[in-house]
């Protein structure tokens, strides 16, 4: 078998207990949610915590709720399957529901959590490998080594943000609620990322992500998610595109947003999307050419690196195609954009 390194597992019942355990153990401790990212990584000795603090038994971290002012509050431990199937999420945050429905395969969506997905480690074909494999080429900067095999001579790790939900949450302007030894804080998900593949998120020591809050979306909100992958199931994204179109009563675009992921260390918001699409009426020829213009913007701005498996040139070529298709899908009120 592919053995796990030794550790101790604790399953506290309350958040404060969990934080206390984390704080006491310091950097030797890690949180485990569904374990679908962490366990394979530990089997590859990419993480070797001495203590694992499971959040599985903390009831308050589960469930999807609609707050009085209309925001959706999703407990970090809510499974991806539950989020995907939630009528609230489907109705008020369709891009998120679609993204969750395309993560991995059915079993992994039942096990994996939304919190774990937000906090997914970055991925790279030179990194997500066994100890033996990584050792054979002298390791790399992200773990145990000092070089990068993607950008030879590079000084930064460019492992890819590969979580499907992150771009969707960004288009939705989601906030992350975190709880740590210093108390709780809230951060806009946009501000959560850093451009470093080694650790691409600003999660404080001993901090736990408790809730993901999606602010109220307007009545004319449309959203969709597009995912490029080789197979129709199981695979991580080779490219992920989340879009948002908020339209007024006359179907004119009031607000638009496009975020692309699986490029480099953090998801990328395509610039000038709002300006290009604002004011166009869905279905009009002007809207269609604005969509094509956005696709071209995305092509210029997004450069997938050969960090994850698959042909990087092809992934780049698909950026405008998936941006275009996902925008059209959102305009039609459907999606996701996925080949099966």
């Amino acid at each position: 078998m592919l053995r796990l390194p030794k550790f101790e597992l604790r399953s506290p019942r309350t958040l404060s207990e969990a934080i206390q355990l984390l704080e006491e153990a310091g950097p030797a401790a890690m949180v485990i949610a569904g374990g679908t990212d962490l366990v394979p990584n530990m089997k590859h000795e990419l993480a070797t915590p001495e203590l694992l603090v499971s959040l599985a038994h903390i009831e308050e971290l589960r469930g999807v709720r609609r707050e009085p002012e209309g925001a959706l509050a999703i407990g970090a431990m809510t499974s991806l399957a539950e989020v995907a199937a939630s009528e609230l999420v489907q109705r008020f945050a369709p891009a998120l529901a679609q993204a969750c429905s395309l993560v991995a395969g059915p079993q992994l969506r039942a096990m994996g959590t939304l919190g774990g997905n937000v906090l997914l480690d970055t991925r790279c074909q030179w990194f997500n490998q066994s100890y033996f494999w990584r050792q054979a080429l002298g390791f790399c900067m992200k773990k145990d080594g000092s070089v990068c095999h993607v950008v030879q001579g590079g000084k930064n790790c460019v492992a890819a943000a590969s979580n499907d939900t992150a771009p969707a949450l960004m288009t939705l302007g989601a906030r992350l609620e975190l709880e740590g030894p210093e108390g709780s804080r809230t951060t806009a998900i946009d501000d959560f990322w850093v451009a470093d593949g080694i650790v691409n998120k600003k999660l404080g020591a001993s901090e736990i992500l408790t809730r993901i809050v999606v602010p109220p979306t307007p009545r004319g909100h449309r959203g969709a998610y597009g995912k490029l992958r080789d197979r129709g199931s199981i695979d991580f994204p080779l490219l992920g595109v989340a879009v948002r179109l908020d339209v007024d009563e006359t179907e004119r675009v009031a607000h638009a947003d496009v975020v692309v992921t699986a490029l480099a260390a953090q998801p990328k918001r395509v610039a000038k999307v709002g300006d290009t699409l604002r004011g166009q009426t869905l279905g009009s020829p002007e809207f269609e050419s604005a969509v094509l213009a956005v696709a071209e913007l995305a092509r210029k701005q997004c450069r997938p690196l050969p960090n994850i498996p698959g042909d990087a040139d092809y992934r780049r070529e698909m950026v405008p195609v998936y941006v275009k298709r996902t925008l059209f899908a959102a305009a039609r009120g459907d999606g996701p954009v996925h080949h099966v």
């Binding site: 074909q125 054979a136 080789d230 197979r231 129709g232 199931s233 199981i234 695979d235 498996p309 099966v340």
Partner: peptide, 20 residues
């Protein structure tokens, strides 16, 4: 380029699933 199998796993070696 190192002569190392580029993805010796059932994730990176893509066997079709039932939807493929």
């Amino acid at each position: 380029r190192f002569g190392l199998h580029s993805g010796p796993s059932l994730l990176d070696y893509r066997l079709p699933t039932s939807v493929d």
